[in-house]
Design a protein around this nucleic acid. Structure first.
Lengths: 203, 203
DNA sequence: GTCTATAATCGGATAGAC
DNA sequence: GTCTATCCGATTATAGAC
């Protein structure tokens, strides 16, 4: 058997730059979304020229896809950290809290809202869709378990619960509360988790 | 005293065309949002040239502002229909249900999400802000009443409740459920109202 | 692979004839 | 006021030198 080829210095530098690009895109997508983000901004944020940026990613769409793919990797990592003796409802709440925190700290590129021009592209991008399906399957299991345990309304269709959870990090409420400046990040996260799982009614 | 001047045929035609423009913008903003809507599309949808469109509205921003202003008028009308013997919580639920229906039927231009380039402009546009403040004052009263009646969690800050209600028509969940095609509009409205006021929990 | 310079396109806005 | 034709800036993407 061959030992796995050791990455050369050049290869490591290349990977490092690519990661720096994706970090910049995380912040830009998180702040202004796909349509308002320009490739000039990305290049400037990383400190490289636009032409070099295009050597790493052939198009703006593919750049966004790579970023979203990496987000799903992070999410799957977070999901994998959960242990079997946690309650499903607690795992779901943890995930929502985590994703809102990621959004607040600028590491959460917009999940594709139907309105973004990138949405259709992402739905046809295999690597992204496959990871999304993987995540959906796991969360689907958690949701059913939580419904059977009496912690989530069993009359709610699974899709409704799933989308409600997926949509939380891009809920405009988070941005409005942040903008007002009257709440700490912790309070904002608490507000989103509470209204998500308990609604507005007394708890 | 003078009698109010009777509008001439020309003036009525002008007003009619203006209303047709705003109807088209309602649908476009509702479907793709401000940034993805182009003035060419608007002109084409109405069946006039772009230059004529600019005779009615001096800029894309002002066009959006007029549309959003008209939306607030409709909302204030809806609010005025409520009678005093209704419970505050029921009025709030009615308003959420109505706004989601408007969105589903393409008459709900996006409320300014922080991410849209129009957001800052709207916040400086007097007529819009004044109407928004008017609506906010009324809903603020309803929210406090509902909290005192024990129908809304009194520990939730007013802003959290208000923003949560304001954000419902532009919740991505609505679009996702609609796109899936598995739910009727009525079921979608019910899902949004339920998850908004009761959350995901049973009960 | 990185850069500067540039092509190609798109979209907001306007000129000028009628 | 409406139209056709056009301007102009911004943005994605690429050519070609090093």
């Amino acid at each position: 058997m061959n030992t796995p080829p050791k990455p050369s210095l050049k290869e490591r530098q290349f990977a490092l730059r690519e990661s720096a690009i994706l970090d910049a895109v995380d912040a830009l997508l998180s702040g202004k979304g796909f349509d308002l983000m320009t490739m000039d901004e990305v290049a400037q944020a990383v400190g490289i020229s636009k032409a070099s940026l295009y050597k790493h990613f052939d198009s703006k769409e593919l750049l966004a896809a790579a970023t979203m793919s990496r987000l799903l990797d992070r999410t799957l990592d977070k999901v994998a950290e959960c242990t079997d003796n946690q309650r499903a409802i607690d795992k779901l709440k943890m995930l929502v809290a985590w994703s809102v925190l990621e959004h607040l700290e600028g590491r959460m590129p917009t999940l594709p809202s139907t309105r973004s021009s990138i949405h259709e592209f992402m739905m046809r991008h295999r690597p992204y869709v496959e990871k999304l399906e993987q995540l959906t399957e796991i969360l689907g299991g958690w949701i059913i378990a939580a419904q059977e345990a009496g912690h989530i309304n069993p009359r709610l269709p699974g899709e409704v619960v799933l989308y409600t959870i997926y949509a939380r990090p891009c809920d405009p409420v988070t941005d409005f509360l942040k903008m007002g400046g009257a709440f700490t990040d912790e309070e904002i996260i608490d507000a989103i988790v509470t209204t998500c799982f308990n609604g507005l009614q007394p708890g």
